[in-house]
């Protein structure tokens, strides 16, 4: 649906070249929620603005639904923009217009008959749960309600794509959750492809199918949410994962392991999907002559599915431990933890 092929955006500033977006290759599939995460200044905002040509790419090719937008005339571009909705961190609503007129705006500028506008506005306000606020002005609404108006406005023209520019960054955690839930419904019920940028890992964890991590204008890592959470490779990705889930074994526990000698059997057990709900470890201690001692661990939720890992120590005969590990490996991922490696 959206394809970046070696896309760069270069700004000239006093003779210096600033590569805000640098050689990005990305491909967002239809009906997918794709997240781009990065610290501020990583180039995410520029990246998302390239999609609807609010920013013009300096290099590379960008295809939206197979079409290179840079080849279009201005009227053609405006037509395509009506199929790409966009929501913003600060909502960007018309303060002088009521909620109803804000949502009607994209339809009114397209020359849709008033009767059809009214029907569509009512329908879409119902969808975002703001039917009772139709006659209010934006400054009478809370942040979450304003973003709902933003979403309703973006959806009014029935777009194929929704771009989210830090859409939840100005909202509190509870409101963020409800907005993310709404975005997921947007995808599920209208099959709209969503590209969102954020600096909050808990946002992508909640809704994204796949994510890309950006730093200094480059995409440094990308993959499914489970891949990035279970095996983050780049230090920046690891930092982001750590903001929602402690992945490293704390120093105090490591110290304990070191001190008590190298003859201990310590493993990291990673749970994905339904395995997190199974009594894998207690089953092992019943079936084999081993004791399971949980040293450290964390279970979290990715897209509503439990995900996590435990660091456990198995105590018993070597032979039994090997058999036990064999058995656990059938349902979860197991890695031995070396005392010095952590």
């Amino acid at each position: 649906m959206i394809e970046f092929e070696g896309v760069s955006k270069i700004y000239e500033h006093n003779g210096n070249e600033l590569r805000a977006v640098d050689q990005v290759d990305l491909s967002v599939n239809k009906g997918e929620i794709f997240g781009v995460i990065g610290y501020s200044g990583a180039g995410k905002s520029t990246l998302v603005r390239l999609v609807n040509l609010l920013e013009y790419p300096s290099e590379g090719r960008l295809l939206v639904d197979g079409e290179d937008l840079t080849q279009l005339s201005k009227p053609e571009l405006r037509k395509v923009r009506k199929r790409i909705g966009m929501i913003f961190q600060h909502f960007n609503l018309l303060e002088s217009k009521t909620v109803r007129h804000n949502v009607a705006f994209p339809l009114a500028i397209s020359g849709v008959p008033k009767k059809d506008i009214d029907a569509r506005v009512e329908e879409i306000l119902e969808f975002v749960g703001l039917s009772d606020k139709a006659r209010q002005y934006p400054d009478q609404l809370s942040g979450g309600q304003k973003q709902r108006v933003g979403i309703a406005r973006a959806l009014a023209t029935s777009p194929d794509i929704l771009l989210c520019d830090e859409a939840t960054s100005a909202l509190d955690p509870e409101t963020t959750k409800s907005i993310l839930k709404l975005l997921r419904r947007v995808r599920d019920e209208y099959n709209i492809t969503i590209l969102m940028i954020t600096h909050e890992m808990n946002v992508v964890r909640e809704v994204c199918d796949r994510i890309a991590v950006m730093e200094h204008g480059r995409v440094i890592e990308q993959g499914s949410i489970f891949d990035l959470f279970s095996q983050p490779e780049h230090p920046t990705t690891k930092n982001f994962v750590r903001t929602v889930m402690e992945n490293e074994i704390p120093a105090s526990i490591l110290e304990g392991i070191e001190n008590r000698g190298a003859s201990r059997h310590i493993y990291r057990v990673t749970f994905v999907n339904e395995s997190a709900g199974q009594p894998v470890l207690s089953g092992v201690s019943k079936s084999f002559e081993v004791e399971v001692n949980v040293l450290f661990g964390q279970i979290t939720e990715l897209q509503g599915i439990p995900f996590g890992h435990l660091v456990v120590e198995l105590q018993g005969e070597d032979k039994e431990i090997v058999r036990a590990i064999d058995s656990i490996q059938r349902s979860v991922t197991v890695q031995e933890v070396k005392a010095h490696a952590g």
Binding site: L77, R78, K82, M86, F88, N92, L93, S96, F105, I109
Partner: peptide, 23 residues
């Protein structure tokens, strides 16, 4: 940002002047 939003919605410069800037 409000101007940018209108541009993203495919408004023409005249529409932005008449329907965003002035109101």
């Amino acid at each position: 940002g409000v101007i940018e939003a209108a541009e993203a919605m495919g408004a023409t410069p005249w529409q932005i002047i008449a329907r965003v800037y002035i109101p």
